[in-house]
Nucleic acid binder design. Structure first.
Lengths: 220, 220
DNA sequence: CCATCTGTGGCACTCGGTGTCATAGATGGG
DNA sequence: CCCATCTATGACACCGAGTGCCACAGATGG
């Protein structure tokens, strides 16, 4: 089932109140105010994606549900794929900062292990939505593929830290290999989490990271 | 610069000789003979991709260069992305078989290390083309993304072996984590290889795999 | 009232990918 | 030699993601 509405049909917003001269919503900035927000758009999108499936949902559908035009959708998100990633980039900056602020006394591997667990620690209230979001990403081929590009930024953060701490170039084999390896076991941890209904993410992730830290040979 | 030719314009083949009744090219099978081959198509495609860039090349361009119709292109390859992977799947089956045939005396990690090095050992005559192919894959965002789906099959082979050897389920955390980790360091190895002009792949890969095998802590 | 600024969305276009169908070209058999 | 049959080709029409362009909406301060 596809959107019946043709490309340029009339969308309809929730008719937000828009009295003249400042609803003091604007920060004093000139220009028309955005009709929606990235977060609001994401909310609508995730609902439809879960309901109909990612592939079966068109950008038209999402835009219509959010009451905006298709063209406008692409001003909030560069692609349909990008909608599902939420605050990832901002969140990643937090991890970068945390790593940078780590005491040099803490071993590299330990620091990474902690940082990664922190990065993946969400308020309990968000557990369910986090789980649903990750299920979408990890089980939709198009999103799996796209995720590589997001993961690359994550790996860059890890590699940067390893490079700084071991006096190597960020592009060198060791930092990159470590970043790849940590990414890998973390994703494997996520898959394990998703495969088991009531499971807790953090212990699983810790176990996955432990496989690396303790050495694969000793873990098998 | 894009292909100027509209969707359905006339392509032109090399006018292959086609005498009636068997050029004994056919294996006795009925039906029209294919006008080209996947390998031939790949050859044309890689040339254009390297010349103009992957993104800037349209499927029309490739089809035209190969003297076939656009529609026919998609009968040889399911997508533009798939063209660059050559014999990957067949090659992967070789690795699966090699792993399956490994003596139980060889430790899991050692067996994997050997299998992965074998998998990535190419005849010297192909070194250059292999390098160019991998550069294309690892440096083109669209192909980076798509590669995830190929790597998934690779990981499945590794995980299957680990699972069989350690008596675990293939989907369990350990086999999946090991597969992910090995994939990661291997890709890091490839990136290192590509970053250094005259470098040899196998020693670099071996070094990358060694980081995992010896334990990351001891390697930093 | 107006100049200015930002956001919106309609439109047309490109390109990857797919379903359908007529046709080309090979086969073996009568 | 013609024909039934089989496979491959390619034209065509269509869908959906993504983009450039541009007129217009709606907020601002002067």
């Amino acid at each position: 089932m596809r959107s019946a509405r043709p490309r340029g049909a009339p969308p309809r917003g929730e008719a937000a109140p828009a009295g003249r001269r400042t609803d003091n919503v604007t920060g004093g900035r000139a220009g028309r105010r955005p009709v929606t927000s990235a977060a609001e758009l994401e909310r609508h999108a995730l609902l439809i994606f879960e309901e109909r499936g990612f592939e079966a949902t068109t950008v038209d559908d999402v835009a219509a549900a959010a009451g905006i035009g298709r063209r406008t959708f692409f001003r909030y998100y560069a692609s349909k794929n990008d909608v599902v990633w939420g605050e990832f980039d901002a969140h990643l900056e937090t991890m970068r900062a945390a790593l940078a602020a780590t005491s040099p006394d803490v071993p590299v591997i330990t620091a990474l292990r902690r940082a990664i667990l922190d990065f993946n620690t969400y308020p309990v209230a968000e557990t369910d939505s986090h789980r649903r979001r990750m299920a979408l990403i990890l089980r939709t081929p198009a999103l799996q593929a796209h995720s590589t590009l997001r993961y690359a930024r994550w790996r860059a953060v890890v590699a940067e830290f390893v490079a700084a701490r071991t006096g190597r170039d960020e592009g060198a084999l060791e930092p990159q290999a470590v970043a790849w390896a940590f990414l890998g076991v973390a994703v494997a941890g996520y898959e394990e989490w998703l495969a088991h209904a009531g499971a807790e993410l953090i212990p699983i992730l810790d176990r996955a990271l432990g496989l690396l830290v303790d050495g694969l040979d000793r873990s098998l």
